[in-house]
């Protein structure tokens, strides 16, 4: 665990010393702000976070891969992975440490959007339950998106390729629900279940369903596991 935290800390330091995280997070907060304002000045403003949380979750398609693209790809490019993997550090500690660092940045970014929540509380009387469940959902959704980004980053030494891979995968996993509802029947249901968006709706409406939590945790586990395996096979290449 010590190694994991050491690696997480090192990555956080680099996040704070380089512009990528600032730029990406700022874009996210601004995007959430725009959807927030659109709701406020719209014909039928609601005192809920749903209005900006749902579109923001779509923005994860860009945010997550941009945050994770460097993490493992650059280690391979610089050759530093060779030093990490010849140190007394387990492969999963490397992957998990880096993942935790990206998660911290994501949560910090979400914390910045609380500004809009404060505005809602200042000018309306929202239900606190849905606000909290929405943020729980946002964290889980984001964490799953980052895990997908980690796998993408482990597969290549090129950050751009890693970002594109991550965005492509997220794009499919997000919008596959439209295909699901078209198909109908059992296949359609299965496809719907796979979509990351399907599982987010309830959180935004204030419903915390264990099955949704399990879904996101499974995505995290599967993709991190694959990322660890991918790092392991780096040795054989």
């Amino acid at each position: 665990m010590n190694n994991t935290l050491t690696i997480a800390w090192k990555e956080l330091k680099i996040y704070f010393q380089t512009p990528t995280a600032y730029v990406v997070s700022a874009m996210f907060v601004v995007f959430a702000g725009i959807t927030f304002i659109l709701n406020v000045i719209g014909t039928n403003p609601e005192a809920t976070v749903r209005s900006f949380v749902v579109p923001s979750s779509i923005f994860y398609i860009l945010l997550a891969p941009l945050l994770t693209m460097r993490l493992l790809a650059e280690e391979q490019k610089l050759g530093t992975l060779e030093l990490l993997l010849t140190s007394p550090v387990r492969d999963w500690e490397v992957v998990l440490g880096k993942y935790i660092a990206s998660l911290v940045i994501l949560i910090a970014t979400l914390a910045a959007t609380l500004y809009y929540v404060i505005m809602i509380y200042a000018f309306g009387e929202p239900d606190s339950g849905p606000v909290m469940s929405a943020y729980l959902g946002m964290i889980l959704y984001g964490a799953a998106a980052l895990a997908i980004g980690m796998l993408a980053s482990s597969l290549t030494s090129n950050q751009i390729v890693s970002a594109v891979l991550g965005m492509g995968t997220l794009l499919i996993l997000t919008f596959i629900d439209t295909l699901g509802s078209r198909l109908g029947g059992v296949t359609g249901d299965i496809v719907l279940e796979i979509s990351m968006r399907t599982h987010f709706g309830d959180f935004a409406r204030g419903i915390v369903d264990t099955s949704h939590i399990v879904y996101y945790l499974s995505i995290i586990a599967i993709f991190l596991f694959l990322a660890v395996r991918s790092v392991e096979t780096r040795r054989w290449r």
């Binding site: 330091k13 680099i14 010393q17 610089l78 050759g79 530093t80 060779e82 030093l83």
Partner: peptide, 10 residues
Amino acid sequence: PETVPLYTDM
């Protein structure tokens, strides 16, 4: 290693 791997951002 012969490539002298270093984290250039540190």
